[in-house]
Amino acid sequence: MRHHAVPVLVVLAVVVVLWYAGALLLNFDVARNLADENATTWDIAAATMSQGRPVLPAPHQVATELFESVFMHPVNSPKSLVYHAAVTAFAAGVGFVFAFVLGIALAIGIVHVRTLERSLMLWIITSQTVPVLAIAPMVVVVLGNVGLTGLLPKALIAGYLSFFPISTGMVKGLRSPDPMQRDLMRTYSASGAQVFRKLRWPAAMAFLFPSLKVAATLALVGAIVAELPTGAQAGLGARLLTGSYYGQTQQIWAALIMASLLALLAVGVIDGARLAMLRARGGRL
């Protein structure tokens, strides 16, 4: 960890410097047009750092916007970014749980039933090469027609997206015990259920956590994109959309950073679960 700290900090510092430079360059034209005649170049440059709707908001502007929208409004008001983040995170979470249960169930089926494997595996793999996110607007509109709005369409899309990595990862994991180990179980005359509980399932855990991380990010992306087509009232996707309609760049950046923080939080939770399991198993996954 220490080994990485200095280089990471240096790279981050370079990014921030470049960001400020970018803000100066990109906002300069607008600032010059807005400035009065006897403004010096220095004045204009200073103005690029504090515009209302900058082309590229400076890092401190984004930080201020983030701070204000997180801490300066009550959590349940639509002005609070925490509120929007919670709406999106909840939809993504519900979808993720769906996907978790279904993905694992399907993987178990595929590993044990040959017909399922032969019929489904190719389609599951193919579906990963397909931009499934494209169906989001349609799902939202169709479910809206039958009277389902709000959480459910978003959770469905989030779940649908995160389902595939979980099921493919688990199929790989449940198959990962090598023939020697399975032969050993056979010499113990273990039943199918015992092989599953004592060999396949524990072996699959090493594959489960990486796919869960991918799935969590996808669930979040799915929930955000599902908020776009209806012009949703709440959620990070809605913040992105209204921000882009009204040119509120700071709002977009704040929502983006919030989304990234959510993704990091999800990955962190999954890593925590992995570490807990690692410890419970004495350091081997």
């Binding site: 080994h3 990485h4 200095v6 280089p7 990471v8 900090l9 240096v10 790279v11 981050l12 996110l133 991380k213 990010t217 979040l220 992306v221 955000i224 994109v225 990070l236 992105l240 959309l241 921000g243 882009s244 760049t249 977009i252 950046w253 929502a255 983006l256 989304a259 990234s260 993704a263 990091l264 990955v267």
Partner: peptide
């Protein structure tokens, strides 16, 4: 490499499509 790689794997966990409006 030590500086960028951790940030790169962080970035790949982020919902990058969100930059679309920008």
């Amino acid at each position: 490499r030590r500086g960028v790689l951790p940030l790169g794997s962080l970035a790949s966990a982020m919902p990058i499509v969100g930059i679309a409006p920008i």
